[in-house]
Design a protein around this nucleic acid. Sequence first.
RNA 1: GGGGAAGUAGCUCAGAUUGGUUAGAGUACUGGCCUGUCACGCCAGAGGCCGCGGGUUCGAACCCCGUCUUCCCCGCCA
Length: 602
Amino acid sequence: MTTQAADLDAMGSLRRTHGCGSITRAQVGEEVVVAGWVHRRRDHGGVIFVDLRDRDGIVQVVFRPETSPESHDRAGSLRSEWVLLARGIVEARSAETVNSKMPTGEIEIDIQELRILNAATPPPFSIEEETEADEAVRLRHRLHDLRRPPLQRALAIRHQVARAMRESLSGQDFLEIETPMLARATPEGARDFLVPSRLQPGDFYALPQSPQIMKQLLMVAGLDRYYQMARCFRDEDQRADRQLEFTQVDLEMSFVGVEDVLEVLERVTVDACRAAGVELERPFRRMSFEDAMTRYGCDRPDTRILLELVEMTDIFETSGFKAFASAVEQGGIVKCLPIHDAEAISRSEIDRLEKLVRKELGARGLGWIRIDENGEWRSPIVKFLSDDEKGAIAERTEARPGSLLFFQADAFERANAILSRLRIDLGERLERTDGREWDALFVVDFPLFEADEKGRLGYVHQPFVAPLDEDLPKLDSDPISVRGTHYDVIMNGVELGSGSLRNHRPDVQRRILEVMGYTEAEMEKSFGFMLEALEVGAPPHGGFAFGFDRMAMVLAKADSLRDVIAFPKTQRGQDLLMHAPSAVDAGQLDELSIRVRPTEKG
RNA sequence: GGGGAAGUAGCUCAGAUUGGUUAGAGUACUGGCCUGUCACGCCAGAGGCCGCGGGUUCGAACCCCGUCUUCCCCGCCA
């Protein structure tokens, strides 16, 4: 659709004097010039009101035939989202016409001169605080969506947080250093985005998944303290909190231990949040990975939710209740989520929850016991339990009339994932929270290795994480129990970022790769230049990477990364506004020595 | 790769779990009227490949099969 031919004006020498949202009673009587978009128009035949909107806010401008017949006449043709420049006198509204719902509702501008700078096609949906438009529609019409206040606020918060983090890190003696976007493909980790090389036909660059290796090389090179607002790329399936391309506030520092890094992280996090108007309590709480999993079933707990899980595995080791006992026998666990005063959870609600965890998380079922007002145990599973088991359950969960107990008997990961999901769902719905708005904490002491189903060890985070000094001897004797120096910063149940000390000694790095089953040749192929770098005098070093988009999401109280990124991609990786990715000319492919295999899609 | 939800007017949605006239509403849009509205109001009008492709049927928005798109989740993402 194209715009109607309209009689348009040039700006001439007229310039804006105020943002729409910043005009108050203080300007009454002054002449002002405002510029923006027609938010709404109310034409009374005589007087015409236009709500004019810019980044700053909305102000009512008035066109009266008696003030300026010409402006009034032309205002009649205005439509939504047309672009105006208008000069007029700020007037106080009479008591009856004050609009208390608008920040600028006490004043209006009597327009003397109107310049229509541009017309506009009708917007696909109205530009409001809240929109009901489908997300696909919002993404296709991203320019209109970006005009909505929540998105404008989110981008402003994003800017403020970025500025504060740069300032904070500069103030702590970090240098901002850029690293290449055209980097080397890595065999490990996420799928790479590849970029074909014209000058080296048949070879490819890879867009960096993160600057991990490059920042370690900077430490070896003696730059001491580095940071970067780093664009990162991972060609993996997306989620509400994962985009193909995203931004990390990446940092690394030399001659430090865990405490030194955490001190920096705490300062940066506090400074960043303050820039978004959020004051965090210091010091941040610390929690071990083990503690987090035991009590919350999750390595990024939202500790504002007061519900906690209870360990039950030992009770059911030799139970007559086959469903639980066999889970334990197969190396799994039994855990319980007790909820007291749970009368509000109906039987049909329990069925709904069971269906949910079966479908979404692969639960085998959802065991539950309700203790009614008379102390009777109402439950489909209670008939399988011995008196001893019932006694132990009651004692550990502090069950009482009104309590509802949810059980999972499954593999460690799954049982915890399911109960953690229920904990968050029900904790929020029943408002079992401590009332704090913000909850920042460090989770520390992650295991270095995890075993796959065949018992082979792999790294939990990445292959360069240094072990805790005191666990170093166990690298040979009991590697699975070796704890890493890895740490996470968690806020409101969202992982803001993670980091660790790195292996600076080549012998330790090699030993860790050996434990994971790498042969000498594989080590050379995958990590050759890293291992070489450690040989040229690598200082002890460690660092961190904040998921900057996630920080903005949490601080803007958004539910999706797409609401804090100007031009995000859909779950299928498409940009619905600019239509990327797209086919390219045969000539372009030819230059790159690339031939595309035809697909069904064409 | 797998599971789920959705797809009807620009937008948000009805359209019986029972297939049957010309597919409706609100809003937005267009024209007219209106000098104190602020979700302005009143009158009139226009607007539809019922996501797409097959099939069943005398007849399909509706039933069946496939497919595409968006969102949520699992896998995946050090």
